[in-house]
Nucleic acid binder design. Structure first.
Lengths: 266, 266
DNA sequence: AAGGATACTTTACAGCATAAAGGGATGGAG
DNA sequence: CTCCATCCCTTTATGCTGTAAAGTATCCTT
């Protein structure tokens, strides 16, 4: 399931995201000193999501990690969705914000894509947060600025840049999602890909004896070894396949960009 | 949040997916006649998900739609995750299984991509079901066979076909996801994109007065009208933007495929 | 008529986000 | 120094969720 962006007071959301008050200000009024902070909560929530996945990220769990109850968090953060927005933007601070295009945009884009790929695999839950309405936080903007900087080097019309960015993000996210979800499924269920696949593919023959004639193209390609996977690399079946698909797909997408650039070269 | 595939008995899962018993058989044993059927439950669940989204798809809700309790469903389906698998595969029956490549693979792929795009927008919840471990149902295979049939026409090596398919799916899914989630967010919160964007972009200036210098490339491209959206088309802002990104991105991906095909032409 | 299988309901439980209310500590105002 | 407003945090409660366990009603076979 996809988690949607917060829908609370925009003023409060944006103010939190951009940290209007420099975080950690002594808060001079009456009442007890705050024992926590937004930053601390966000950090804790991020490592929890990294370790146990989004489904395990409950307000109770975050509170417990901090030695508080779930409700204590509501002093700092208006709701769970706002917390997710903060986590989302905050974690994007890990991404590089500048790429050297000296060796050409293509080299830089490969670097960018691989940074993003690793980032998503480090924080797979990011892929499960809805992209529908951008969080509009500072770090997401910084990341966007970085790719845009590379892509403008291709020299295509300004109007064609956003769709190109869209393809790039869709591609990296899609490729990373496959691997991330495979890992997560394995972790959650304790069943490796191989253990999952084997009984099912065996069952396939039993349950669909006419497979070859029903799905001739799949069968033919399988015979040609199209679905074979390099066994040298580490990781599970889906992980290797995912990595290969990422590398091969990236070449393809970059070729597409090159064609687009050539079509409207200055 | 992403919903994972079922992890129950593979034999039962596959048997259900491929409908080993021809559905609607009179069931001659003792006991009351079944009032429901797997197909009926799956259909009901699909229309519920279409109308109200995955989060609203509870066992209670499905049962209620059928005049039963939630627990009644467990007579037919082992768990909610299995039901999701069944929904997922079943709904894929809507996709065409054959495309005419007479006018060239490119035309056929455009048709395929648009069919898939419309399919995802008709059933946005499909995008929220994990792709990690394919459901391995008959209709998903049929759909796969269809694209593979087109892509093999390009004439690239067999080993390069799966990554190409991966890019195609990632792209269409990513593009559709943007629009689907925007729609859903609007439906759920009752706030249109415009109403969502406006206060936030206004707030941006307030909260980040140094935006122009912090994000120079974004600013420059915005000045060149890169983010302007064609106001003629219908739908909300994000919807129009999504559609444009889909069309422009598709060209880009197909260019990439063409380059890949040329690289290994027979 | 008896027995057993089957369809379905009822009840119950643990977990979720969060509203509402209360406890207890703190610092400023009088 | 006293009083009180303020603020951090906890407790309690509500209505959701999936589904385990047990119970009821219905039907066919013997």
């Amino acid at each position: 399931m996809v988690v949607f962006a917060a829908q609370g007071d925009p003023r409060r959301s944006m103010s939190l995201l951009w940290r209007e008050k420099p975080a950690g200000q002594p808060s001079k009024g009456p009442g007890p000193k705050p024992g926590l902070s937004v930053d601390l909560i966000v950090e804790t929530a991020i490592s929890l999501a990294d370790e146990r996945g989004l489904p395990a990220l409950s307000m109770r769990a975050v509170g417990e990690s901090l030695g508080r109850t779930a409700m204590a968090l509501y002093t700092y953060v208006p709701s769970k969705t706002e917390l997710l927005d903060l986590m989302y933007d905050s974690v994007h601070a890990e991404l590089p914000v500048r790429y050297d295009t000296g060796a050409g945009w293509r080299v830089a884009l490969v670097e960018w894509a691989e940074d993003l790929w690793r980032f998503y695999l480090r924080h797979p839950w990011v892929l499960q947060v809805s992209q529908a309405r951008p969080v509009l936080g500072p770090h997401e903007y910084a990341g966007l600025d970085a790719v845009l900087g590379i892509v403008t080097e291709i020299g295509m019309e300004a109007r064609r840049v956003p769709p190109a960015i869209g393809v790039l993000f869709s591609f990296v996210r899609g490729a990373a999602r496959n691997v991330a979800e495979a890992r997560q499924a394995g972790q959650l269920t304790g069943v490796s890909d191989e253990d999952w696949w084997f009984p099912r593919s065996a069952m396939l023959e039993e349950v669909a004896p006419d497979f070859d004639t029903r799905f001739p193209v799949v069968t033919e390609l399988a015979a040609k070894g199209a679905f074979d996977v390099d066994h040298e690399a580490g990781g599970s079946y889906l992980e290797r396949e995912g990595r290969q698909a990422f590398e091969a797909g990236l070449v393809l997408v970059l070729d597409g960009l090159e064609a687009a650039g050539a079509g409207s070269a200055t």
